[in-house]
């Protein structure tokens, strides 16, 4: 029974991927991509990786889907530019062969693993108590591969900078994205007013329980960003100018707190990003809180896009 469900799920994932590649319009492709992401989420749940499933649903399907949708809308009316930037058939075939080859090699490598697969899970589980984190995934992300997690947080800042760099010089420092009219009545106005408080609580909850159960800063931050986007499209808030110090501080607060905690590890512990014993849990919680803010700010700014209006 379980095996049948897994085979069906695998077939659906591949079908959704093929449908997305063959989709006639950009909009249809994005819809297919979001459906593909949700099916991959189910696959991660079947594999028992609920943390990864939450991240895939929030960032892979949700946030990326919205960013791609905004890109599709922006590309309307730019047919010449789009066709000039679309690669030729030879490049597409080469990219397809390369991706297929990598996928095949990965599949063979996974199938060639001995059963049970070798790993460091037992060693990681044995020492996670020292960090005071009940969720083994959070313990590994913050304790064993803190440097990776720090760099992931920095990458988000660079992604926002890359989007901002798309603006012409005269718009630098301005307000990103289109301006939406304020909805006083109608379904969107109702949704924005009803869902915002619930979503804020759920976003903070998901970020907070990450220490003990599946969840965390990236998943919770994405929900918070989604609530800001909802308030924005309902016209309840306007995006801040990118020259604003508050926006820039929110964007770098997480990486900055992470770096400071890393240097504190050099002063108090065994080295860079080594959590000092006894202080590990409170320091990790502070870093995670700052990271949640920065992830939310970065994703919201990625959706809003480059500055388009003078402040």
């Amino acid at each position: 029974m379980g095996g049948l469900v897994d085979w069906l799920l695998a077939a659906l994932v591949l079908g959704a991927a093929a449908w997305t590649l063959a989709a006639p319009t950009g909009f249809a492709a994005v819809v297919g991509f979001v459906g593909f992401g949700l099916l991959v989420t189910l696959a991660w749940v079947r594999l028992g990786a609920v943390d990864v499933a939450l991240t895939e649903a929030a960032i892979g399907a949700g946030a990326t889907g919205v960013i791609l949708l905004m890109a599709v809308v922006r590309l309307r009316g730019g047919a010449e530019e789009v066709s000039a930037a679309t690669p030729g058939r030879a490049v597409m075939v080469a990219a397809g062969l390369l991706a297929g080859g990598v996928g095949l090699a990965l599949a063979l490598a996974v199938l060639a693993l001995p059963d049970p697969a070798p790993g460091l899970a037992a060693a990681a589980m044995a020492r996670r108590g020292e960090l005071g984190l009940g969720n083994p995934v959070a313990a590994v992300l913050m304790g064993y591969r803190g440097l990776d997690t720090l760099l992931e947080s920095v990458v988000l800042v660079f992604a926002v900078l890359a989007v901002w760099s798309m603006a012409p010089d005269r718009r630098w420092g301005g307000i990103p994205g289109p301006r939406f009219p304020r909805q006083e009545a109608g379904p969107l106005a109702l949704l924005a007013r009803l869902l915002l408080p619930i979503g804020l609580v759920i976003g903070i909850h998901v970020a907070w329980v990450g220490a003990e159960a599946p969840g965390g800063k990236f998943q919770g931050g994405t929900i918070l960003a989604a609530m800001w986007v909802l308030a924005w499209v309902a016209g309840l808030v306007q995006p801040p100018a990118i020259a604003s110090q508050a926006v820039r501080l929110a964007l770098v607060a997480g990486p900055l707190a992470f770096l400071l905690a890393g240097f504190a590890g050099m002063a108090l512990g065994e080295g860079f990003l080594a959590w000092p014993p006894g202080l590990a849990k409170p320091m990790i919680l502070l870093v995670e809180a700052a990271m949640t803010l920065s992830v939310a700010a970065a994703l919201a700014l990625l959706v809003a896009g480059p500055p388009e209006r003078a402040a």
Binding site: P181, R182, Q183, A185, G186, P187, L188, A189
Partner: peptide, 13 residues
């Protein structure tokens, strides 16, 4: 509701 309003051309705002 939003899709239906869009289809019927009675979008608020």
């Amino acid at each position: 509701q939003m899709i239906a309003a869009r289809v019927r051309g009675t979008e608020p705002g």
